[in-house]
Simulated scan of single mutants.
Amino acid sequence: MRFSKSLIILALSAGLAACGDSDKSSDNMDEALEEMTMEMGEMATNHQFMVEVVNLTAAQPFSPVAVIAHTEGMLWKIGEPASEALEIMAEGGDNSELLAAEMTMQAASAESPLPPGEQVTLTLTTGELDSLKISLATMLVNTNDAFTGLNAIDVSSLAVNESLSRTSFAYDAGTEANTEAQGTIPGPADSGEGYNEMRDDINHVAMHPGVVSQDDGLTNSVLTSQHKFDNPVVRITITRTQ
């Protein structure tokens, strides 16, 4: 809620008048006005972050990138089962459940997939700065359930116009076997099935072992050697702009 300066003065004047006349009333009012104005300014301050995402792969489009601001929680933990929201995103590229996660304070999503070698910039605006973290997730769509991103990166100490840059690896959601088989991959290499609620893999998040492909002897794979990827697969730069 925003208050005008005139309303603040009126409220302070009424309070001081009730205390009786004093030579110090004017000084007290000035000090109180300054303090209250600063407090209201802090309450009204928005903190803005620009998040630039670069796809470093040769032939792995990313699903629409999801970015969230939060103060608690993580999107995933190595060695633990993926949440349903992460599974849906990692198998089919749908980030809507991640964006709506309980820990999410503010969120932004790219409007379309991110092609190999290209970049997209998203903006997050929040009124909270203490313990503020930013997380990001996106699927490598020419895979069964590979994803990448950033997990709870603390940005609370970033000054305005200061940036931090990170690269990230490909992770395996562990919810769908990496068969590379026809009909199982939602990306343009196959246009197959996306999310399937059945889990038929190790059922915990791990580093992704990589694509095998038909060129390297996986005869039922719809992928070729061009779909292979080296780590890191993404570069992310976060800049505080306000």
Rank of each mutant, 00 (worst) to 15 (best):
S4M: 07
S6H: 05
I9R: 15
L10A: 14
L12F: 03
A17L: 15
A17M: 15
D21Y: 15
S22D: 11
D23H: 11
S25L: 10
M29W: 08
E31H: 15
A32I: 04
E34M: 14
E35M: 14
M38Y: 12
M40W: 00
T45Y: 07
Q48L: 07
V53R: 01
L56R: 06
A59Y: 02
A59T: 01
P61C: 12
F62P: 03
A66W: 06
A66L: 08
H70A: 01
L75V: 03
K77H: 11
I78R: 00
I78F: 10
I78M: 14
A82F: 09
S83E: 13
E84H: 08
M89E: 15
G93C: 14
A100I: 01
M103A: 04
M103P: 11
M103E: 11
M105N: 02
A108F: 07
A108D: 01
E111I: 10
E118L: 11
T121S: 11
L122T: 02
T123V: 04
L124G: 00
T125G: 00
T126S: 12
K133C: 10
I134R: 03
L136Q: 13
L136D: 13
M139G: 07
M139R: 14
L140F: 02
V141F: 10
N144Y: 02
F147D: 03
D154M: 09
V160S: 09
S163L: 03
S163P: 04
L164D: 11
R166T: 05
T167Q: 15
A170P: 06
D172V: 00
N178V: 01
Q182H: 15
Q182W: 12
A189N: 00
G192F: 07
H204Q: 12
A206V: 15
H208V: 06
G210P: 05
V212S: 15
S213V: 10
S213W: 00
L218K: 04
N220M: 03
H227Y: 03
K228T: 14
K228I: 02
I236L: 05
I236M: 02
I238T: 03
I238F: 04
I238R: 03
T239Q: 06
Q242R: 10
